[in-house]
Write a protein that binds this DNA or RNA. Structure first.
Length: 261
DNA sequence: AGCGATGTTCGCCG
DNA sequence: TCGGCGAACATCGC
């Protein structure tokens, strides 16, 4: 699932369901998902509670005093809070059993997600070299980040050290809405365009969060429903172009998104 | 039945 | 050091 809107949805779900309950048992069904030893995971969590959570980019950090559990979801991660009476969800890799009738399952279908333990948020962000959180950043900081970079804009978005949280799909949507060609050099953008881009990042992510990360019911005027071959631009009816960049497929409208801005 | 996939990381090269 | 590329990771659904 996850780019920023999905992870924000996981955060709200975890906050609503799983805080303040004693963790009495942890079951790890696949150790490849752990970046730390199982014993350290247990030492850090057992007998404690999930106190609060913070999302930075695509990462969710859950505070347990004194450490943080870091959840990353790869391309196919999920969380499910379920009654102990029921079977664990399919592809559960770690199950947190609370001192209640419920468990929280960390699910990773394709094993791309990871769980880690860290001492502080600042240290984590620094070690991972993560940029500003795309949803929380202010305009001046964003402008500073843009001016420090020389890469083409699509690659910049995919690089989490530029700004954190935007991935392949939402970056296409943001560039479409901003009428920016994905291969535009990011440092060629002028102030007005940077401002417009900033506003569109916020709006696209906000809409995504309101949709709870569900991409399947987007209105026609967005690019998202048209990210496939032989689709047409909802604004001008030109055929959408598919291109490859950094080993991924991106989509854009060659008429609405011209190189020059 | 092969290919592609909302992510990250690492090594290589310019 | 940065930027871009390609591969690797793992596995399921189309």
């Amino acid at each position: 699932m996850p780019e920023l809107p999905e992870v924000e949805t996981f955060k709200r779900y975890l906050d609503k369901t799983s805080l303040k309950q004693l963790i009495k048992k942890i079951i790890v069904t696949d150790h490849r998902i752990l970046k730390i030893d199982e014993s350290f995971l247990k030492e850090s969590l057992l007998g404690k509670k999930f106190e609060s959570s913070i999302r930075h980019g695509k990462y969710l950090l859950v505070f347990l005093n004194p450490r943080y559990l870091v959840m990353h979801f790869g391309m196919t991660g999920d969380l499910e809070y379920y009654n102990k009476k029921d079977d664990p969800p399919k592809y559960s890799k770690v199950i947190f059993q609370f001192n209640t009738d419920f468990n929280l399952a960390y699910i990773s279908t394709r094993m791309f997600g990871k769980l880690d333990i860290v001492d502080s948020i600042e240290e984590f962000i620094k070690n991972k070299k993560l940029g500003l959180d795309a949803y929380k950043m202010g305009f001046e900081d964003f402008k500073g980040a843009v001016e420090k970079r020389t890469a083409i804009i699509k690659n910049a978005f995919l690089n989490q050290s530029f700004i954190a949280g935007v991935g392949n799909i939402y970056s296409d949507e943001i560039l479409f809405r901003s009428k920016i060609h994905p291969k535009t050099k990011i440092n060629s953008l002028h102030e007005g365009k940077i401002k417009e881009l900033f506003t569109n990042i916020k709006d696209v992510l906000k809409f995504g969060i309101e949709k709870q990360g569900d991409l399947s019911t987007y209105p026609n005027q967005f690019l998202i429903p048209h990210r496939k071959l032989e689709e047409r631009c909802p604004a001008c009816n030109t055929e959408i172009t598919r291109f490859e960049i950094g080993g991924r497929h991106g989509f854009f409208c060659p008429k609405c998104q011209k190189e020059e801005n």
